[in-house]
């Protein structure tokens, strides 16, 4: 009962700022009544109840789900037995990497926001971009990011080395990719980290860092989300580059000299359709 009250109180605290901003600006600066106030108030009650329920489920299901997987997949009964006193090799944790990959790929591939965006991208690219392949590219990027993040936790590789490497790749690709894909690529980095996946991945990483000898949660446990956001940017731009390159080769073969239609150079505005 006490716990429920705490959750309700923190939920109210969480929502206060945005409510103050929206309704404060509406009534004090714009000074116009809200057209469907009754309906909006019903919505706000739903927001409040929903957030409270979600925060409760976060503690009772989402965190434990990630933590228990890390615990089970790193327990000494589960891992291959060691001969003598040798230290464990990072490859012994292959089920951890597989789990990370599976969670990343499965939660991303069917993401509704991603489906909508990829269909649009297919249209804008004039057929160069296949929406389904694009979705696969995002899912692979996300899954690879989390897998790399779990490998990093196992080996203790400093996070910023990986992030620097990824940043450099992103910068180089940004300068060389077809222009229309750049906003989409950066957006896809944000699409992958949903409200459901973030807590599970966080708990997975922290428990992993707690379970692996020589790792500490505070130094090694975070970073999976950062990598999960970065790698879709890389795979999406890579796919666009490959698609454009293939298109150019096909055209060069069909008609010489090659004609640039301007379609896949991306100087078309994003939503001009």
């Amino acid at each position: 009962m006490n716990e429920a009250l705490t959750i309700l109180r923190t939920t109210l605290f969480d929502l206060m700022p945005i409510l103050a901003v929206i309704f404060g600006f509406q009534y004090l600066i714009i000074r116009k009544p809200v057209p469907h106030l009754g309906r909006n108030l019903i919505g706000l009650v739903l927001v409040f109840l929903g957030l409270a329920l979600f925060l409760f489920g976060l503690e009772t299901a989402l965190f434990p789900l990630g933590a228990v997987m890390a615990e089970q997949l790193t327990s000494s009964e589960f891992l291959p037995t060691l001969a003598g006193e040798v230290e464990r090799h990072w490859s012994h944790y292959y089920w951890v990497y597989l789990f990370a990959f599976a969670i990343g790929a499965s939660t991303t591939i069917a993401e509704p926001a991603l489906i909508a965006v990829s269909l649009k991208a297919g249209k804008v690219s004039g057929g160069t971009i296949d929406p389904f392949v694009l979705r696969v590219a995002v899912a692979i990027g996300m899954a690879f990011g989390i897998t790399l993040g779990s490998w990093r936790i196992v080996t203790g590789t400093p996070l910023h080395y990986l992030v620097i490497g990824a940043y450099l790749l992103v910068i180089i690709q940004t300068l060389r990719s077809p222009k229309f894909i750049i906003p989409l690529a950066f957006d896809s980095g944000g699409v992958t980290t949903s409200t459901i996946t973030v807590p599970i991945i966080t708990a997975l990483g922290l428990s992993l860092a707690g379970a692996i000898p020589g790792r500490s949660p505070v130094l090694d446990g975070f970073g999976m989300i950062a990598l999960a956001c970065l790698f879709p940017i890389i795979t999406v731009m890579a796919y666009a580059q490959i698609a454009e390159w293939r298109q150019r080769r096909i055209r060069a073969r069909q008609e010489s000299p090659p004609v640039r239609t301007g379609h896949n150079r991306g100087d078309k505005p994003w939503n001009s359709s």
Binding site: I22, G43, L46, V47, G50, L51, A52, L53, G57
Partner: peptide
């Protein structure tokens, strides 16, 4: 507990997203 928690997440997310759509 896991099942109760998952149902809370499901209901919570449903109400939250719908509420945002019509309220905020």
């Amino acid at each position: 507990e896991l099942i109760i928690g998952l149902i809370s997440v499901l209901l919570g997310l449903t109400l939250f997203v719908k509420g945002l759509e019509i309220g905020l």
